[in-house]
Amino acid sequence: MIPVEYYIILSAILFAIGVAGVLVRRNALIIFMSIELMLNSANLAIVAFSSVLKSFSGQVFVFFVIAVAAAEVAVGLALMVEIFKAKHSIDVDQMNSLKG
């Protein structure tokens, strides 16, 4: 028997790693992957709670999140391809023309 807190803490650690990835990496693709990691950590927490509460709603939400993530990745990667076409780089630091 595993206390649910373990899952939650694991989820928090994974989320923090995802946050760090977004902040530290300059490669837009890796930033994107970090975002996916954060989504996953959230999913893990939801499923853990769902299991404790004996409710399938949580699982259904996770299913939706996965669907939304798929759509998001499709659009995001398309955007990235376009950006690469324009800038010939996917370094986010190169995209700093919008500054004061």
Partner: peptide, 12 residues
């Protein structure tokens, strides 16, 4: 999470 969010019981 450790101190506040404590759904009673364990997982399975």
């Amino acid at each position: 999470l450790w101190t506040k969010a404590r759904p009673s019981g364990a997982v399975l």
